[in-house]
Amino acid sequence: MEEVSLGTGNWDRLTGPVREMFVAHARTWLDEQSDPSWALLDLDRLSACTMPVLLSRGSTSPSWFSMVLERLAAALPRAQRKLFEGLGPIPHVTHPQQYTAVLTEFTRPAEAGEPAPGR
């Protein structure tokens, strides 16, 4: 898991139940990765999304994460990106406090009185 998905050291950060879930669904993940259309995205349909979207990744995420996020960012007109330096692809699981702080800032209303993203 560390080499393919989570990044070095992140398996140890997961709780027992989360590790069990990953193990129980390992075959499904392998099946998804073997699907030749796993990365197909309906970019035209996504471009109709008018809500702010936060796209995040860790700097140690596998390279294919970046490729998918680049395509999403290009299609989503109000996409914002956040890079978590030194973290893997699931910072919401491995570093929940840091991730919560980013989400809190993302959903905070703008100074100019604009509604918070998603409202």
Rank of each mutant, 00 (worst) to 15 (best):
A75L: 00
R81Q: 15
L103D: 03
E111N: 12
E111S: 14
H92E: 01
G7V: 05
T104I: 03
Q98T: 13
A73R: 12
E32S: 05
R13A: 13
L83M: 13
S37R: 11
T104Q: 14
S63C: 03
F22M: 15
G88T: 00
S56K: 00
L55I: 02
R108Q: 10
V93G: 00
P62W: 06
A75F: 02
T107C: 09
P77D: 02
E111A: 15
L87C: 11
P89C: 09
T28D: 14
S63M: 06
F65I: 11
P36S: 10
G86S: 09
R108Y: 01
T107E: 01
W11V: 00
F65M: 11
E3T: 02
I90G: 10
M51A: 15
V18Y: 01
Q80N: 04
E111C: 09
Q80T: 11
A101G: 06
P17S: 04
L103K: 07
L46R: 04
Q33W: 14
W64N: 12
Q97Y: 14
L6P: 04
V93D: 08
G58T: 04
Q80R: 15
V102M: 06
F65W: 10
E2A: 11
T15K: 09
L46E: 04
W64T: 05
S37M: 08
G7M: 03
T28L: 15
P52N: 13
G86D: 06
G16F: 11
L14D: 00
E85N: 05
A48N: 13
S66M: 05
W38M: 13
Q98K: 11
G16Y: 09
P109S: 09
P36G: 11
R45D: 12
V18M: 11
R81L: 04
G88E: 01
Y99A: 13
G58I: 02
P62L: 06
H92F: 07
F22D: 03
A74Y: 01
L41G: 07
R57G: 03
A101S: 13
W64Y: 08
E105R: 15
T8M: 09
W38V: 14
H92Q: 07
V102Y: 00
T94K: 00
L54M: 08
L103W: 06
G7I: 00
A74R: 08
V93F: 13
L40W: 07
A116V: 08
R19T: 04
T15D: 12
G7K: 03
P109V: 06
